[in-house]
Design a protein around this nucleic acid. Sequence first.
DNA 1: CTGAAAGCGCTTACAG
DNA 2: CTGAAAGCGCTTACAG
Lengths: 346, 346
Amino acid sequence: MKSQKGVSILDVAREANVSSATVSRVVNNINKVKPEVRQKVLDAIDALGYSPNHAARALVKQKTNCIGIIVNNLHDPFFHDLIKGFEMSAQQTKYAVMFCSVLGGDVASKEKYVKYLTNGVVDAVILYGSYLSDESVINYLKEIRNVDYVMIEDDVPFLACNKLLIDNLGGARQAVKYLIGKGHRDIAHICGNPNKKVTKERLDGYVDAMEKAGLEVKEQYVQCTSTDYRSGYACMNALLDLEQPPTAVFCSDDAIASFAIRAALDRGFRIPEDISVMGFDNQTILPDHYRGPEITSVSQPLYNIGMDSVRILSERLNSSEEMEPVRITYQTEIVEKESVGVCRRE
Amino acid sequence: MKSQKGVSILDVAREANVSSATVSRVVNNINKVKPEVRQKVLDAIDALGYSPNHAARALVKQKTNCIGIIVNNLHDPFFHDLIKGFEMSAQQTKYAVMFCSVLGGDVASKEKYVKYLTNGVVDAVILYGSYLSDESVINYLKEIRNVDYVMIEDDVPFLACNKLLIDNLGGARQAVKYLIGKGHRDIAHICGNPNKKVTKERLDGYVDAMEKAGLEVKEQYVQCTSTDYRSGYACMNALLDLEQPPTAVFCSDDAIASFAIRAALDRGFRIPEDISVMGFDNQTILPDHYRGPEITSVSQPLYNIGMDSVRILSERLNSSEEMEPVRITYQTEIVEKESVGVCRRE
DNA sequence: CTGAAAGCGCTTACAG
DNA sequence: CTGAAAGCGCTTACAG
């Protein structure tokens, strides 16, 4: 139900004995309207409790003063820092910022939200993350002309939009080099969600760094999780079951690492004395009551990425001239914590 | 920038040699339109890449098929379960669901979002939580006629809207009784954010249960945090500095409890052997790398509350008749974990 | 400084 | 089954 009409600009105009144009002018603080008329209008607005209808305004002005953000699994604690960044910059902009969440990366739902937002609901959208299954969404975005957007962590070659990226390949290489620097040679990798692009990039970085260091990439040393990072637990178990278990494990992300560590601890291994574990993301808040050692990781500046994305869009929307798309690649960096130690084998 | 006009229904009509009414009919699957005409229109839509403008549609239909959710501090891991509930029910409804976040409970920003959403942007809004400072928002809501809404955790007496509540007073009583049952008599309380309504309710429950049990409520046994739950750390330190420290501490929420526990652990106290700590909320994910014992707590069904709120609104919006506002009070329950033990004093 | 009128992109009685 | 026309609630040239 609920569709009683609210009070419109015409009601106010009638009440104040002026035209709707005049009401519009005082509401928008535009042009000069005589002080006494202005006051009459203000009084009428107050008396009637008028607020302008956003849909109507959006329709005529062809803009909404709103920015939409689409992420997968908003509840995931991974987003903590990123959301904080969005929130902070939202506070500093005139744009209203709204979040949409797509559960489990479901394409249909993601497409629904993209279409919804880009058709008169927001002026710009921020898309976080990339799944291999996102193809249809990308195809739709190609055609979009009326909305500006930024993609975070997804470098679609033929899409000329703003891109905020991090160097997953390089970050993974750094991680493996760091482990090698600690004397490890038997280094395993736990791959992440097979539907995520970063998974492949980080795997490639692992393989590349291993080969460059002249280390063999043993097939059994590469374990893959399901779409659920909790399966990092089983992956670690598989590694520990090997005849010659690795002395270090580089995980595709910290959530996975946290479960890998739980598995090792549950079997009585000490971390990092018996086995080193390294993650990626430097995730501030880990899932499911993690209580292991703090995880040495490759950090990406999620807070800044969140801040920047809103700021960039806000600047572009306010600019009168057409701007070239922005492309930023953020640097990753090793954050040493407690889960990696010097190799003790041989 | 970005305001090139997109393709409108008229462009499609022209392309397909029909009227815009006909295009509208096929887009909305309404009435019967001859199959061959329908196909022509479909082809035109495809060729032009047309998607209906949401603002225009919202304007004429006076509904948006969208539900808005407003919370304070969306990044707070407290919301993990609640967001999951929202997400799950969003998936099961035709409504698009959008989240707005208000940093630190800033009233101006909250009011902005409420006004924004309720004026032609959504059909219904969900408001989570209540701050003492929310008065102006409440006043605005009183006048709202065109939007349905549910308030979670805020029982404003004169507001006849849907309310999903939990019994904070009763829950706090349960907690204190539970501690008394463990033999504790020197029970302290750490109050939460002074701007939150639940803080007062839980304090009242504490006082009430203490008095009913014939236990004195010592002034020094009631410590209050700032608006930041991290100050639970300082509160616990103050309690431990007392000549006769409490043997048990009931905290206004789990985030506070997690910091209280850190303080005790840092001073060498064992939990629960030396001091018992109890929380409220049964929060799945704790902030800032908490590694202490799992916190015995009073749980509220946040996941269900999230689910129910979207479902209830969705049902009401779809119903043709005016419905009485819903009022649900969810039961709290003690969840025994690791942070409370039997009292050892005397 | 103010108003009449057109128009934003749709939907929906109303005719035919 | 289909189209012409009015209207949703605003804003904004255009006159005056």
